[in-house]
Simulated scan of single mutants.
Amino acid sequence: MSHSDLLAMRKAACAAYVPGIGTSYGYVPSLGAGITFCVLFGVSMIAHTVQLCWKRTWWCVVFSIGCMVELIGWAGRTWSHDCPYNDTAFLMQISTLIIAPTFFTAGIYVLLGRFIQILGRESSILSPSLYLWIFCTCDVISLVVQAIGGGMASAGVDDGNTGTGTDIMVAGIVFQLFSITIFVICAVDFAFRTVRRRLLQKLSGSVVPLLAAMVLSVMVIYARSIYRTIELVQGWSGYLITHEVYFIALDGAMMVIAVGVFNFLHPGWLLPENVEHKNDYNSEIELQRAA
């Protein structure tokens, strides 16, 4: 098949897989995986939407939005199963699945801020508002850089000139990994301070599981970031990016855990209903120290 024939297939509404003719993925995306993750993120999105409306925790809308973006991405991969050469389906999934985790991390930044408000300023090296401003800004910068690189790489596919765009994408995701690493260090510092100063001893038992859920979510998002960084560094023909099992396990499954854990341990149910409750917690801690 000539290069022009391949370009025609990619621009067609849908062309079935032709053995021996490679796809943009390096494989044909799994239909079963696509449907499974569409269902999982769809259910989580509906549950989060109901939960945030029920408890009026409006900031938790970031979890619903993140699920919706993941759903769109996995719908693109499901579409690509039957139309593996379709550029629209490929670009739809690659752009959304890069963006989606940013909404989950934004929710975690807010949640950590709530914990700092409850436990007191001594529990963190940064103020609650700084977590949101610093790390959300870093996420936005990394996404803009990745979007620019992705656009350049996509534009250069036809003539095989994707090198510059790929390098920019790698720079963006490396920057994102760096910012998440700094956040993880800050989160570890927060955990160390709360344990060392025994700040958790007087907290309600319902808050501690939520803290554990936050830690789990951070861990899987960080694992996913490491995977995506290595994947892009290897390039579009690298081993990781051309073997779907790694994407399913280290991206899809990680993101289901990251957002799904908050369906079972939702901040609206487990956090104090308003900021004023933080004073009650702090008063109990101070009384314990005085005793």
Rank of each mutant, 00 (worst) to 15 (best):
H3T: 15
D5L: 04
L6C: 02
L7S: 12
K11M: 03
K11L: 05
A13C: 00
C14H: 08
P19L: 05
G20C: 09
Y25W: 14
G26L: 03
L31M: 14
F37S: 07
C38P: 08
C38E: 11
C38N: 13
F41Q: 00
M45N: 00
H48D: 06
T49N: 06
T49D: 01
Q51V: 10
Q51W: 06
W54F: 03
W54A: 04
W58C: 07
W59K: 00
I65R: 09
I65V: 14
G73L: 04
A75I: 11
G76V: 13
R77N: 03
H81R: 11
N86P: 01
A89S: 15
F90L: 11
M92Q: 11
Q93F: 06
I94Y: 06
S95E: 05
P101I: 14
T105Y: 13
V110Q: 10
V110C: 14
L111N: 03
G113K: 04
R114M: 01
R114C: 09
Q117T: 09
I118P: 06
R121H: 11
I125R: 14
S127G: 13
S129A: 14
L130A: 10
C138W: 09
C138M: 15
C138G: 10
Q146F: 11
M152P: 00
A153K: 02
A155Y: 03
V157H: 08
V157Y: 08
V157R: 14
T164G: 00
G165R: 02
G165L: 12
T166A: 11
I168P: 05
M169W: 02
M169V: 09
A171L: 12
G172Y: 02
I173V: 15
I173R: 04
F175R: 10
S179A: 14
V188M: 11
D189I: 04
F190V: 02
R196L: 06
R198W: 07
L199C: 07
K202S: 11
K202F: 07
L203C: 13
L203Q: 07
V207W: 09
V207R: 01
V208E: 03
L210K: 06
L210V: 01
A212S: 13
V215M: 11
V218Y: 01
M219Y: 05
V220Y: 05
I226Q: 10
Y227T: 08
R228W: 04
L232R: 12
G235T: 06
G235H: 09
W236M: 08
L240G: 07
I241N: 10
A249F: 07
G252L: 04
I257V: 15
V259T: 10
V261A: 01
V261T: 14
F262G: 01
F264S: 07
P267T: 01
H277D: 15
H277L: 01
K278F: 11
N282W: 05
E284D: 06
A290I: 15
